[in-house]
Amino acid sequence: MTTSRDWPLYEVFIRARGGLDHKHVGSIHAVDARMAMEHARDVYTRRQEGVSIWVVRSSEIVASDPAEADAFFEPARDKVYRHPTFYDIPDEVKTL
């Protein structure tokens, strides 16, 4: 059990404009989700950098292991036929 008295850590994601994805921008310490939201606004959007914010406890993030990346992403490596450029279409065929 940690004796830390520091506030828990939240990861912050911001949607810059309507139509865009939320993007990770950094993290923030806060006692609860509401405070995390307010602190994220004060720290990461002082110049109108966003129209929407997500915060999530850092401890809740599940991440893939970079050391295992080769094996983990291996299944997609030999499936070039998933890309449209794999197929040779005769020049005469249009709009395909």
């Binding site: 008295r5 520091d6 950094g26 993290s27 310490h29 720290v43």
Partner: peptide, 16 residues
């Protein structure tokens, strides 16, 4: 300061 403490914490040290 907050951005940089946040970035430093990714190296496995606490802000505290």
């Amino acid at each position: 300061g907050a951005y940089l403490y946040s970035a430093t914490e990714t190296l496995g040290i606490t802000r505290e």
